[in-house]
């Protein structure tokens, strides 16, 4: 491994978290403008995290409670290590190998499961309700997500993200145009993954008082917020790689990921909240059906 790669390996989680948190801050600002308010500054989430890291923390509910946020951010950082970030003259891909798409399908779930274990041990009933809702919703959106990935794997006869990026050499060859069924299924799963408005029953602050993190405060919450920003960045980069032909440099990366980020944001601003069974019905009906149609078409 070259020294440049080692530097990127250390720097990338920080850059990713900063970009992800900035996006979430901008989303707060856009939401405020839609609601006819001024809104917080775009860097508000970074201020929040500095404050949370500087708080004293004296909560204990057992070993898994302490390990939950740590394992969640471990899962997210290890996902980041397998996602090719830049493919251009100065490429950044750290541990990409043949078949990393299958690994990504598994490892993306790890953080959510660690979170569920940690929140489950806190003993707060709101946490338990939030965890059960979150895991149920995860079963919902994993189905169209996996179908979308299988369409891409069958189409290009590979399970390496780098090969899929290489196949999308021009704009006309981007998978968003070549496999629209796969893109629609994947973007519906993306709405669920981002936890924006129609699918935010997991964290619903007004009814189950923020759900799984309701017993987490101080530095634990800081780790979880960092994880949220970083995970948003990882998912955006993965979707850019799979459907928008990857990115050659940082400016392209930011433009493409931000364009993708706006889709769940704008859908979220104008929609109310789905109940769990409505969310499950949505995920298992339309995106799954569209995905299966795409799969049949690509197999023919």
């Amino acid at each position: 491994m070259s020294p440049m790669n080692i530097i990127w390996m250390i720097a990338m989680p920080f850059i990713g978290a900063a970009i992800g948190l900035l996006y979430i801050g901008i989303s707060r600002n856009i939401t405020a403008r839609v609601q006819n308010r001024f809104g917080p500054p775009p860097y508000q989430n970074i201020i929040d995290i500095i404050k949370l890291y500087s708080k004293k923390t004296a909560i204990t509910h057992g070993v898994m409670f302490h390990l939950g946020p740590v394992l969640a951010i471990t899962g997210t950082i290890s996902t980041l290590m397998f996602v090719p970030i830049l493919t251009g003259n100065y490429p950044i891909y750290l541990f990409s190998f043949q078949g990393d798409l299958i690994l990504l399908m598994y490892i993306m779930v790890f953080g959510c499961l660690a979170m569920a274990l940690g929140a489950g041990q806190s003993g707060n009933p709101n946490s338990a309700i939030g965890v059960s809702r979150g895991l149920t919703q995860m079963f919902g959106y994993e189905v169209p997500f996996v179908i979308a990935l299988i369409i891409l794997m069958v189409r290009f006869d590979t399970s390496s993200v780098l090969d899929i990026i290489k196949a999308q050499d021009t704009v006309a060859h981007w998978n968003i145009f070549r496999s629209p069924f796969s893109f629609i299924a994947a973007i519906a799963a993306f709405l669920g993954m981002m936890g924006n408005k129609p699918f935010d029953i997991v964290f619903a602050p007004a009814e189950i008082s923020s759900g799984p993190p309701s017993e987490y405060g101080g530095k634990y919450l800081a780790l979880m917020q960092t994880n949220r920003g970083l995970f948003a960045f990882v998912k955006l980069v993965l979707y850019t790689d799979l459907f928008l032909g990857g990115a050659g440099d940082f400016i392209t990366l930011i433009l493409k990921t931000f364009a993708l980020f706006l889709i769940p944001l704008f859908i979220g601003i104008v929609n109310p909240r789905f109940r769990t069974e409505q969310a499950m019905t949505f995920f298992w009906k339309w995106p799954t059906a569209i995905g299966v149609v795409g799969l049949v078409l690509v197999l023919l």
Binding site: R28, A32, Q35, N36, R37, F38, G39, P40, Q44, I47, D48, I59, N126, P205, A206, S209, S210, P213, S214, E215, Y216, G217, G218, L221
Partner: peptide, 19 residues
């Protein structure tokens, strides 16, 4: 909410005492 908008000063409501 919109009329006086305390969020522009970074003031946000939280659901639990831990946070």
């Amino acid at each position: 909410t919109s009329r006086y908008d305390a969020e522009r000063f970074g003031i946000t409501g939280m659901a639990t005492p831990r946070q």
